[in-house]
Computed example of a mutant assay.
Amino acid sequence: MATWAYPPLPAEQLQKEEETALSKELEWLLAALQESLVSLREGLQECAGLLAPREPGSTLVLSSVRSESVKGFVTRIGTRIVKGDIQLRLASLPPSRGANSTRLNVSGIPGAPELVLYQLAAVRNLINQGLDVIDVSTFTGDPLNASFISGQLRLLYEHISEAKSAIKGGADVSKWWELSAESSVFDPPTPSYLSFHLTIADAALVLHLRTLEPISPNQASSAFGSELSLTGFSLRDKIFGPRLPPHDELGEVFVWQGEEVRVKEKIRVESQDPSLIAVLAKLSALEHEVMKCRASLKIVMGDDDGDSDV
């Protein structure tokens, strides 16, 4: 705002007029932020609705694109997988006698363990916490207290950002060897040494299937030794070049169900979920809106050189 006036005013009076104008501007902004909070509440409620456990849910295809390795579907209602029928044809997982494939069928037996998508459960909880923050900012606290509203906006921003990160997922979101589905989730139970792990990445449902082999004391010192020649190079490597590893976890050791194992074969299949894509888009827009609100309030409060995250 301008720092001069005509006719010129004494310095003390000019400073007093500036403080009065800033106070009125801050009061106006705080009132406008209450309207923004109403809009933010509606956006979060839309996200919560998209994650609500409503019938008939979302049926998603989980099939490999260029092979017959994985063919099937799952049905998601809210944060749970309630139905699923997947046929597997993996080189390292021979089917039972008389069958052409290994079938994984999500159990519908009462009392069977639920197949929960923990990332979506975390997103839903964070959205609910964000709604609580807005309710406190609107109905409980002092809406004209700039410091109070600033703190509430910061808390709301953190909840929305964490929810967005959870639904984007990524390689470091979960540990498959700890969060693989229980064998009893399926009817009949999954074969031994088969890991079934569902996660969320970029608002898509991602299935990782891993066939595992236990490590014996002898394997620890001679694992994969049969694939190496005495000179370190095979004739095939000289002609065609070195072979690429079959997957990115080759040779790594994991503790799965209390036992050290290695991954023999790994398959990744994903399915885009329109509801989750909508949630991610809404959370990104809400995050940006809260960021603008925080930046405006900091400037009027004279704290525009504060935190660098807005």
Results as ranks from 00 to 15, higher is better:
G151H: 08
D132S: 15
Y157A: 12
S222F: 08
R124A: 15
E213A: 13
Y157M: 14
A181P: 13
A223Y: 15
V123A: 04
D172I: 03
F148A: 09
E178P: 05
L144M: 09
E182W: 13
D135N: 12
N125E: 13
P217F: 13
Y118Q: 14
T138S: 15
L198V: 04
T190D: 05
A122K: 03
I149A: 01
N145D: 14
P188F: 08
V133Y: 02
E114I: 02
T199P: 05
G151I: 12
L235D: 13
H159S: 12
S234V: 04
F139S: 09
V133M: 05
P217D: 10
A163Q: 13
S195M: 12
A203G: 07
V185P: 00
A201V: 14
L207I: 09
A163D: 07
I215S: 03
D142P: 11
K175I: 08
S222T: 14
L155S: 04
L117R: 07
S216N: 08
E227Q: 13
A201S: 11
N125V: 00
N125L: 03
R210N: 00
A112G: 11
A122I: 01
G130P: 08
A204I: 01
Y118R: 14
L179T: 03
W177I: 05
L194G: 06
V123H: 01
A203H: 14
A223R: 15
Y193Q: 03
G170N: 12
A112N: 06
E213M: 11
V206R: 04
S137V: 00
D142T: 15
L228P: 03
L156C: 00
L156E: 11
H208R: 06
S192G: 02
G232A: 09
E213P: 04
S195C: 05
I200N: 00
F148S: 01
S107A: 04
L144D: 00
V206N: 01
E158Q: 12
V116D: 08
A163T: 03
T190P: 07
I160K: 01
D202T: 06
L228D: 01
